[in-house]
Amino acid sequence: MNIKTTLKKLSEADGPSGREEAVAGLVAELLEPLCDDVRIDDMSNVIGVKRGWGPEPRPQVMLMAHLDEIQMMVSTLDGPFLRFVQLSYDPRVLVGQEVTVFGRRKLHGVIGDRPPHLMKAADRQRMPKTTDLVIDLGLDAETVAELVQVGDVALVESPFSELLDERVAGKAFDNRLSVTAMLATLDQLQRLQHPCDVLAVASVGEEFNGLGAKTATFQLQPDIAIVLDVTFGKQPGAQDAGSFALGSGPVIGVGPNLDGQLTDKLIEVCKDLEIPYELEPLAANTGTDAWTVQVMLGGIRTALVGIAIRNMHSPVEVTDLQDVSRTARLLSAFLAEADQSLVDGLAHHLPDFEEERR
């Protein structure tokens, strides 16, 4: 599997939260040769099952990476212009962006603001407010009213770009990058025996409320889960312990939302295979589907593996493809060892009180 080509396809696909059908179809197509069964459920989660070797019942190990992306929503038709609310986009980068509006048909437009010559001095010095911005489709008001309604979704258009070495830039790396890592893991498993059934889930709605993680976990009832998502890459202004150098390997989450023993096992695999890795301290809500998965059903032992990107929630997220390869190597090696004894070893066991009394 070519990681760069796969990420380009996924990055340039459309898949806003709540309207993930197009990218879900693409992910299902990419999963088809790698899994025994592939389906898209009623929520548009894409679920692929790769069965392990050996007799049933086998351990059920879920990999989850969300496939939806951030978006804008039309809030008002202002003559020929569209006012909008942004859902997680960084408003600093919106002025001058080209967009696609999903009206009665796809419409191409641009985001504009007042010329700086017409702004007050104070306004020129502050960050733009979304309420000041408009989407201009280049159409008259009557045509706009025929083609667009309040609630229609818009996405920033941004082509995939190759930078130097293994660095690339594009939109929706949060979290198509992790979907790519999951696909690369399944590709490596074609050449490995694994004792567990692998449940690969590309989930919907993470940027909104995690509904895909909830419904998919409830359906599949895995024994353990590993959630894949992006994390913050080091760049000017983001140099503290909560950000990580591109190319430094998978970033393994550590915190109360995550299972300590499962996390330790992932770290052990990295050390055994000399895979570079980082640890991300997460003292509370991880802001990922791991927060949701852990408390589903009677509780699911959950770990989190991140991949660093720069410029998160912008149209030019930047990453290093070596981190995707290393993440896939970590996960495939872990899955090759994920037998029933490993799963049983993660469980808490009561002491033998009879033995203690003796």
Rank of each mutant, 00 (worst) to 15 (best):
R19P: 13
A308M: 05
P351Q: 15
Q294R: 12
E142K: 10
G52R: 04
L342V: 15
V324E: 06
S314M: 01
H349I: 08
R358K: 13
A284L: 03
P256C: 02
D229H: 00
L139R: 02
I3D: 08
V318R: 02
G48N: 05
R310A: 06
G210W: 09
T286E: 01
S203C: 13
G15S: 09
P80S: 12
S248D: 13
D14E: 06
D14N: 03
G298F: 00
L155W: 04
S75Q: 03
Q97Y: 07
G54F: 08
A336W: 07
L147E: 15
T327S: 07
K120M: 11
V61I: 13
G260D: 10
D41H: 09
I226A: 10
D187N: 04
R51Y: 07
G298R: 00
G138T: 05
S203M: 11
L273F: 15
N209G: 10
R92Q: 14
A172I: 02
L211I: 05
Q60N: 07
D132C: 11
K271E: 15
V318T: 12
Q221T: 14
H313N: 15
Q239M: 14
V99Y: 08
G233N: 02
C35I: 01
Q86K: 14
D339P: 15
R191Y: 08
H117Y: 12
G170L: 09
P128R: 02
S178G: 12
A283L: 05
M119H: 00
T6E: 09
K8N: 03
I275F: 09
E157F: 01
D320A: 09
Q235T: 08
T302P: 11
P59L: 01
L228H: 09
M127E: 15
S325A: 14
A169W: 02
